[in-house]
Design a binder for these strands. Structure first.
Lengths: 64, 64
DNA sequence: ATCTGATGTAATATATAAATTTCATATGTT
DNA sequence: AACATATGAAATTTATATATTACATCAGAT
């Protein structure tokens, strides 16, 4: 399950840990989501999307 | 966490059980997601969206 | 009134997301 | 060289999504 979290976070020049703190998750969880081989909850996906200024579709939809 | 799964499913005139079978879930899980007080996995959300002919945003984004 | 299909709901079991802790590694900086 | 920051990764624990089973109600059809 690939996505655009990592590239979007890097565009904003913030670290995994900074994003994690903002969305109430841990750095490890962010790392696993960015890695792609993971199945996060919808709630966490929405929180991350809002924090990164994107929508669900922009981050997670149809990303090979 | 409200969404548009129920209204979209009803527009397609399929039952919870039919949708459940198509997406590899149970009727109860579909019922709970439609009810809104639930936090499904991203993978299940994407499978449901594709089955209903919608995107993630259309079903789950910014639905109060 | 009975039967069937559709849905609501609850209790328990299982699978897995997410947290926690820890260690490794790579890069930059002093 | 030593130190700090950022990330990868693994093991264990905890929380919760999901399945399973079961029983209820309601609508429509017979």
């Amino acid at each position: 399950m690939k996505n655009k979290v990592k590239i979007t976070r890097m565009e904003l020049s913030i670290t995994q840990e900074q994003l994690a703190k903002k969305v109430g998750a841990t750095r490890q969880t962010i790392g696993l989501i960015e890695k792609g081989e993971y199945n996060p909850s919808l709630h966490l996906c929405m929180t991350i999307a809002k924090e990164l200024g994107k929508t669900l579709d922009e981050l997670f939809w149809e990303v090979e």
